[in-house]
């Protein structure tokens, strides 16, 4: 089950399964609200997510854009090798931190 945990200025989204259109639509207002209320650091933990689609990527970029206007930052952690390759091919790693899974 995907969870969103907020502690002071930090939010962690722990994904389970897939960051795809339905979940992206569900998470977007939650994260917008969190950033509006002062969250300045968001971590997406993809350790248990193996699928992402363009809506999921759109959510990451939208969150990055929201955080950037407030001086905050987005970090993607524990991405699978396939998702790492996808994000690098899209040059997303040049705009926010993307870390792969530990071997």
């Amino acid at each position: 089950m995907t969870t969103v945990q907020v502690q002071k200025n930090d939010a962690t989204v722990t994904l389970e399964g897939a960051l795809t259109v339905a979940l992206a639509q569900e998470l977007r207002p939650q994260l917008q609200k969190a950033v509006a209320e002062g969250v300045s650091s968001v971590v997406f933990d993809l350790g248990r997510a193996d699928v992402v689609d363009s809506s999921g990527i759109g959510l990451l970029i939208a969150t990055h854009n929201s955080l950037k206007t407030k001086g905050g930052r987005l970090r993607v952690a524990n991405a699978s090798p396939e998702i790492m390759n996808l994000f690098k091919a899209m040059r997303l790693d040049r705009h926010f931190s993307v870390e792969g899974r530990q071997a």
Partner: peptide, 15 residues
């Protein structure tokens, strides 16, 4: 554009 949160689908096709 990198800051645009739409339009990634065609990029996925190209990849």
């Amino acid at each position: 554009d990198i800051e645009n949160c739409h339009g990634r689908g065609l990029e996925i096709y190209r990849l």
